[in-house]
Design a protein around this nucleic acid. Structure first.
Lengths: 390, 390
DNA sequence: GGTGATTTGTTGACTTTGGCAACCTAACAC
DNA sequence: GTGTTAGGTTGCCAAAGTCAACAAATCACC
């Protein structure tokens, strides 16, 4: 019963190799040998097994102008795919993502009003049904990953509280799984953005990073420590928005006074600029950079200084390599990176600040879908042998 | 060269078994079989190896009044020991600690004034020389662990900045290693306290916990996430003291305004009580509990509320199971646990607060020495085979 | 274009290691 | 004493990775 130790080892090594080609992209067999430190023959056998499972494919090597026998390139099999779902205030987005990290198709279903959980599930299920044509015969879908803008109990995908959507204790994963017939995994959108950022964005190669994302209705985020995403005891970690940054009276979405989310807001910037709420992140950034009105500058400085307080607190406690800012926080930073840099420096211990980077996220919308899909891939990556037997 | 995979496996399993008996204390072979899921024969071989290395011993089982053949009890070998060193403002403490976690001897060398790094090394070396009598023939010392009240670069034991001691960039490990001839490892005292607390204190069994320690001159702490101590990028994580908690003007040891360390102080409590600085933690707690003077109450409430802000921020971000408070923070909490509880609850998301415990540390002074010794044991626990060949 | 150097895949023998099962031992219970 | 139960011991087996020898594929140089 109890998986024999040998099995454990084999699985672990298979996992390592599969993760490697998944994250690094196509890699030669010789490269895998070097990266893992395993023997050539072992890699050979391993790749053969993974190929048999249909998880990877071998290609003829590219001409490298190098002496010696060319090594076949191992790449993940593009057939293997996952569905990503992202419910938002005004739309539900569904995408088909390959294990190779490529978004194959993407459907955005706009909604006139904020969808209920049931409506979001219906919409997502319909969109997935539309995708069946693309899937049939072409892809093996391993599951669905949902990026939820709110607190999610990761163990069973229960949405505890999604303030923007107005959802409370919605068994989202269960409902969606019943509707589409695939296993469903849900996670906090910021955490998933963080993961995508670490794997393919500003945080590549970092083991300790903090990610803050500024959205229309609040600030979320996530933390990676020692290379692992911090889930916390129940999976709710990363709520930077409710960190107290001043004694002010402004109130955030949870009713707390003087918090980051209360003081640093998208709407505050838009008001100062005289813009409406329908401005996207890029437009906001351009408008901020273009404006030299004193009131805009004052608001930007005020927000940057508050942001610095929250960042400094987290940096002192976690000593990360990088802080990655997404959404309107990236726009805010872009206006005056130096001010933010110095403000954080003034509130952190010099030794801790040493070597800290504060970067903007590269996170495109696709990257978030990739992060969600990653959730669905996790099972296969964790135990390659589980694939294909279902 | 490259350790064969077989070796890795064997080492990993050996490590697991040794860690088990180290942390859980004496355990029957049958118990190990159950805990590891390995085969009886495997455990048998493993224990034999570890016994041969001199790391563990087998004892006759205690009478258990249980049917069946009694299983020999496996315990770590008490011969294996480490030295722990703890430099403080007014003394340097040195202890001899067994791998079984027992403090064999303990020497406190008082100092009329705060020692320089060189003086601390000299004192420690002298104390260790005094211990030779206890060591010779009776113990195999694997190394020295130093608990430093300040920022330590863990990789090489360089003390970057220890404000209370007035040290900056002192190569403490190097100096001490040269003086005593044992390998020396240094770590932040709060981190070590945290470890000891997790292994044998209030945080037993927790995978996510936050630890804050209030000392005479400041507040330090540490974080465990997913069962691992958060070191951060450079090993400086855990500086909770410099989290901003108010817009006040009080300044902390690093010159930051309105931080936890500036607002929540031992001296503030002592002043309110009309006591001097030489009060120890227990006396302080009793005095606080005994007093019902309004000014004491007011000061306690003020400090508790500030503490709650810092805790809430960390709790929102890290979603731990337990917050452990040590030093005078434990005394502060003891006066009015409910106020602290409710103040934190009022500043954290309900879902995140759910199931959170806020406890006092059990950390005795001995436990800190054990934490420091643990640092020295880490190498042996990590690769049992490395022991005895030196 | 042939020859050698270099790198890498392939194959089968070898080694290590843990699992397994049969057997033996030591306690309790009646 | 005999039965029952739990656990150590031993020899055999299977799995998995290493190793070494060989084959293949490329480049470089004559």
């Amino acid at each position: 019963m109890h998986g024999s130790s040998h099995d454990d080892v084999r699985r672990h090594i298979q996992r390592t190799v599969l993760r490697l080609v998944h994250h690094r992209g196509p890699t030669s067999r010789a490269g895998l040998t070097r990266l893992t430190g395993l023997n050539r023959s072992t890699i050979s056998a391993l790749v053969a097994q993974l190929t048999a499972l249909g998880l990877v494919e071998e290609r003829q090597p590219d001409a490298t102008n190098q002496v010696g026998r060319p090594s076949p390139v191992v790449a993940v099999n593009g057939r293997v795919a996952a569905l990503a779902v992202h419910p938002e205030i005004d739309a539900v987005t569904v995408a088909l993502v390959g294990l190779d990290g490529v978004v194959r198709r993407r459907i955005r279903c706009p909604m006139p009003q904020t969808p209920s959980a049931a409506a979001a599930v219906r919409l997502a299920a319909d969109a997935i049904a539309d995708l069946r044509g693309d899937i049939e015969g072409r892809h093996d879908v391993v599951g669905v990953g949902v990026a939820v803008p709110g607190l999610v109990r990761t163990s069973d995908g229960l949405v505890r509280h999604a303030p923007h959507l107005g959802w409370t204790d919605e068994p989202l994963s269960e409902m969606l799984a019943a509707a589409v017939g695939y296993p469903v995994h849900a996670g906090n959108d910021a955490s998933l953005g963080l993961l995508a950022e670490r794997d393919g964005g500003s945080g590549v190669g970092c083991t300790d990073l903090i990610y803050l994302n500024g959205g229309a209705s609040g600030i979320g985020g996530g933390v990676i420590v020692g290379g692992r995403v911090v889930g916390g005891h129940a999976g709710y970690a990363g709520e930077f928005g409710h960190t107290r940054v001043s004694d002010g009276t402004a109130v955030d979405s949870a009713g707390f006074r003087g918090t980051l989310e209360a003081e640093v807001t998208r709407s505050g910037l838009l008001n100062a600029l005289g813009l409406t709420g329908e401005t996207d992140a890029d437009t906001l950034e351009h408008a901020l950079l273009a404006s030299d009105a004193p009131r805009v500058k004052a608001e930007v400085h005020r927000q940057l200084d508050h942001l610095a307080v929250a960042l400094a607190g987290a940096v002192n406690v976690l000593n990360p390599q990088v802080v990655v800012l997404g959404g309107f926080l990236a726009a805010l930073r872009a206006v005056d990176p130096d001010r933010l840099h110095h403000a954080v420096a003034a509130l952190t211990l010099p030794t801790v600040f040493e070597g800290l980077r504060i970067d903007a996220a590269m996170l495109g919308s696709d990257l978030l879908m990739i992060g969600a899909a990653e959730l669905a891939f996790a099972g296969v990556l964790d135990d390659p042998h589980s694939f294909g037997r279902a």
